[in-house]
Design a protein around this nucleic acid. Structure first.
Lengths: 352, 352
DNA sequence: CTGAAAGCGCTTACAG
DNA sequence: CTGAAAGCGCTTACAG
């Protein structure tokens, strides 16, 4: 097991050629630089024999490229982002890129620091779940011609690539489904964020109410700050349910849905008899809860793959193209929202 | 917004001092190198004004240090590892280290490639969830004096640091609890892995049976390969239940437990009346399922923090110390395993 | 067809 | 108290 310390110069000396020639051959520029087949073959054989590995730092210093992508998510321990990360990593590897992950925890200050750190580490490109108020920093990246693709949400007005789910349609489908099941007093539990994904989910909640003549009631909309979610959210949701007695609740994210289930459980209520429920995002809990939780499943794999494809294209071609992609989510209907006795509509059962 | 291209040389020229002096001051060697306060102050002021950021690659090339930790987990999308990753990232940052993650998917070949890649990227230290048969590669790392800490499992006989949960005791507690509840025909669903964590969990299953005079029955032990888990596991579990009719099942990991719930559900069986259930690891599904799923909760935060502490100590002191740490898990008793009418024992309700 | 040389930005022995 | 110089390992314009 050789200490991996073979440099280009070492090999050049052993072979009696110049480091230049070795570098050319190893970088596949044999033809372009018209290196003789004989020399090239000897170089390649030697590199293989010595298990030559280029020094990443040296190459990076020289070329300014690190073959690394920075991935900023909101929370790596969230089911949605953990899966995104996994697929991004896998896809990036196919292109020869590594991924440096980090989580903002929806904290603007932390997001700024991470951006700074990734710049300093000279990642070649960025995949960013932006927090609010990150326009200036993203603009700066664009100004420096650094490839950026946003994910999950975007920053209106900024000419930057993104891949998102069609959040409006997702919500719209879920709420329409609830209405068709006969529910009219439908509540919406969301975050305090006014970013695009949440705005669209809200619009997709409100619109079908209007379309079907159901009055919008602000009392039924609950906004819970990101930070307090884990600790207080179930309690806050319980209070809202007790105070306003919604017939159905639609949750804007999986963790809110999870907190909702917890709250409903603590109240001793049954789904869907006492209250119906639907949530954005898929989750093992939604799939296996009894009853199953109706949800809007985002095409996680496609989102993640596309975001890498777009970023890699941008990193390697530097055309400055802006690609904005919106992928359709899927309504998965389960027991939590289907009226017991088929009262109003057909109750499809779609299990994943 | 200045293009962050200020180098030490730039600053040296502007200040009329040498790059050496600037470097010394910026690296906190003012005292050691006896740089005058006046010069030092000017350098620091200039660095601040110009928002100087050292070039990471250049520094890495020169020093051989990257201030990066490589973290190899089994599967970043698994609840346990996702949380580990989050805490490791956070803790590492406190020490000024970034984390490069990757998943082995329990594939030896992929593990080897990742190790190779991280070496090539010159990470300063490794946190590794080893797959089976990785002894040679880990030994090689140790031979090259690269700091390594294993997590979740270890490789017997290798003098390498690790942080793990006390898997034996965890299983032992869970199975003892089931026995105390009056269950005797207790099945165990595990992976085909014979690595330490699985071996200990198995031993912790078998031992209390013997202690209480319950015969060990090989038919009640089901071993499911990692890869097939997601697709076939629920079906395999269903078949075993139908064939051998265990009164209770203990699952060796959270994803197996999830598959078990799915299988039991498809069979239309009720917990704990038709079958009792407990699982290693915590999960939202276990917490909020109705009934709640009894589980062995690992001290994820402590494991992750400790593993970083140990690694950083090793990276910065290079003493070659080997620290092997085993942390106690916690039995969380829920409805899935508590005999309905307190038949045999007291049924504690511990909710998280 | 091949090589000598410069330089990426830093750190650090060495000299004074 | 400070600086000139070498060198980490690579890539690439330039020269022949």
């Amino acid at each position: 097991m050789p200490e991996q310390k073979i440099s280009i110069r070492d090999m050049a000396e052993r072979l009696g050629v110049s480091p230049t020639t070795v570098s050319f051959v190893l970088n596949g520029k044999q033809k372009e630089k018209r290196i003789s087949d004989k020399v090239a073959k000897r170089i390649i054989a030697m590199a293989k024999k010595l298990k030559y590995e280029p020094n990443h730092m040296a190459r990076g210093l020289r070329t300014g490229k690190t073959k690394t992508i920075g991935l900023i998510v909101e929370d790596i321990s969230n089911h949605f982002f953990a899966h995104i990360a996994k697929v991004v990593e896998h896809r990036a590897l196919m292109y020869g890129y590594r991924v440096l992950y980090c989580s903002t925890e929806d904290n603007i200050k932390k997001a700024r620091e991470l951006l700074q750190m990734l710049k300093y580490r000279q990642v070649d490109g960025f995949i960013i779940t932006p927090t609010a108020s990150l326009e200036k920093e993203i603009s700066a990246l664009l100004g420096e011609k650094r490839p950026v693709v946003l994910i999950d949400r975007f920053l209106p007005g900024l000419p930057v690539s993104y891949v998102i789910a069609d959040n409006f349609t997702g919500s719209y489908q879920a709420v329409t489904h609830l209405i068709k099941q006969g529910y009219r007093k439908i509540g919406f539990v969301t975050t305090t964020s006014s970013q695009t994904q949440m705005k669209s989910r809200f619009d997709g909640y409100r619109q079908p109410l209007g379309d079907r003549g159901i009055p919008y009631n602000e009392d039924l909309v609950l906004r819970i700050p990101f930070g307090s979610a884990r600790s207080n959210a179930p309690r806050i949701i319980m209070e809202m349910i007790e105070k306003h007695r919604p017939e159905a609740l639609f949750f804007a994210t999986n963790y809110l849905g999870i907190c909702g289930i917890e709250g409903i459980k603590k109240l001793g209520m049954q789904m869907p008899d006492d209250i119906a429920l639907a949530s954005f995002d898929e989750h093992d809990l939604f799939r296996l809860h009894d009853p199953g939780i109706t949800c809007i499943s985002q095409p996680i794999d496609r989102i993640a793959r596309k975001v890498v494809d777009i970023l890699v294209t941008e990193m390697e071609s530097e055309t400055g193209e802006v690609t904005q992609l919106m992928l359709p989510p899927k309504l998965v209907i389960r027991g939590s929202s289907t009226r017991p006795v088929g009262e109003t509509s057909t109750a499809l059962q779609q299990n994943a």
